[in-house]
Design a protein around this nucleic acid. Structure first.
Lengths: 264, 264
DNA sequence: TGGGCTGGTTGATCCAGGTCAAATTCGCCG
DNA sequence: CGGCGAATTTGACCTGGATCAACCAGCCCA
């Protein structure tokens, strides 16, 4: 069993730190954000190419920008909560959001982490079916559901793009079901690292050290494990020279071994 | 660990039988199909209202019918396999299909069961990311991906409908992640029964006995359990008078108790 | 009518990962 | 620098569900 330990409000900056385990050899890990996206101007947005907006041309973009509102969230601030009226849809511009569902007794399942470029809020009803909040400092574009629905209805190419995103999302969800239902703890942690690294690379973050802005509890709740098992497994990986644990992340020494564990 | 035990070809008719536990008091369970859909004529299709085709008007329907091919599959016949080129998309018209992913060593995760009205095959790449085959006798409408893509591109309302289906699918996937990652065996089995009953009701199958055309192994692989645990749990539910196990299904005696287990 | 095959049930035992309980370390702040 | 609360790690132990192994009931076909 595990419980919600969300503290709303401003947290401590987990994005910067140095490695305690390397005796003074500092390892800086920065917040996840492809360079520093300039906001207010969609045409200059650095995440546009890997977001749904990539399907919009200049004139669409001007229209789109008119219905967008930029929102900034401090670490652990809520984006929306399951059960609330789904009045907005969102596009993550910078930072990482945690998407999760809770059981009445507090057990939590993190159903995903949203990265820059990810689209949130396609609810099949008029209410959110999961909750979302900021892991680190998050910037997003928010659209009223109504304006958004109206906007897309005239633009089939945009609808097709959103469909592609939904299909990718669904595929990831199915991968995750396989992981949750049939993989061992070791395979889960290895798969998570490999998958997360791939997602970071996809948005242009190719540093050799994998940034892990989320807590161990978040990772545990994502993998259907306890925090102790995640910690032990990472420590074992380190002992076995597969990786080195650094502040705010992990440095993969043997990506091949990790990938092999993740595959089978 | 569990292994693939797929025998391609015609199986035994699991859709009909009588309850061995009720000493001669026969309990017929029929195949899942809302009445008997008449095929070849979309306009007379009984599952249209709860399928993506519900968004098409008469003239669209005529066009649509032109690109559809009807396919009939015997129990356990494959619909498509993960990794294959995704040349078609499908709409289930009758019967139940099992969607699953395999690990190299044979561990299997059933990621869903497709019922009449369900739409299959939105692959985010040019290859299927999961496999699908018939549980019982299945009838489907098959479309070439190319023709389908072309068809939807001109019809925003149809795209919107497909989007709604994708969003619902994604929500179900997230529910399933919560189940796989955080629920106990007892909660998993109870949730499955309640959820399955709800889906059957949605397509108009409101018999008091819940038809379970899939095998215990399928259920186990769907819930991230072993066949033994599923069997033991169902037997216990029966002992506790929550339900009665009948051939090809289960009769819920205490839906309230089941729902309570499923909820928390 | 009987034997073998398949799917399901039941029982005994085991162990991966959970639970409980301390440390230890980190980040922060005075 | 020193101290405090939160996050993480580590250790000892326990248990839910897996594994291993019969067994049983229907069904098919000879």
């Amino acid at each position: 069993m595990n419980y919600i330990s969300e503290v709303l409000g401003v947290g401590h900056d987990q994005g910067v730190g140095f490695n305690p385990r390397m005796n003074g050899q500092r390892q800086m890990i920065r917040t996840i954000s492809p360079n520093r996206a300039s906001f207010g101007r969609c045409s200059a947005c650095t995440v546009r190419s890997f977001s749904i907006c990539g399907a919009l041309d200049q004139s669409d973009l001007v229209e789109f920008e008119r219905i967008a509102r930029h929102v900034h969230l401090a670490p652990n601030e809520a984006l929306f909560t399951a059960g609330q009226l789904a009045q907005s849809v969102h596009n993550v511009a910078a930072g990482v959001a945690r998407l999760y569902k809770l059981l009445p007794d507090g057990r939590r399942q993190v159903v995903g982490f949203a990265l820059p470029g990810d689209f949130l809020g396609m609810a099949p009803s008029d209410r959110y079916s999961f909750s979302a909040d900021a892991v680190d400092s998050v910037t997003l574009c928010r659209f009223s559901r109504e304006a958004f629905t109206h906007f897309i209805a005239q633009r089939p190419h945009f609808l097709i793009r959103i469909n592609e995103f939904a299909a990718r999302e669904l595929m990831l969800a199915q991968e995750q079901m396989l992981l949750l239902g049939r993989r061992t703890a070791e395979e889960k942690v290895a798969s998570f690292l490999v998958g997360w690294r791939k997602r970071l690379a996809h948005i242009g973050d190719e540093r050799q050290t994998i940034a892990l802005p989320m807590s161990r509890q978040d990772i545990a709740d994502y993998l259907g494990l306890t925090i102790e098992t995640v910690s032990r497994t990472l420590t074992r990986f380190e002992r076995e020279k597969m990786l080195i644990i650094v502040a705010g992340g992990v440095r993969l020494l043997d990506p091949g071994r990790a990938a092999a564990m993740a595959a089978a």
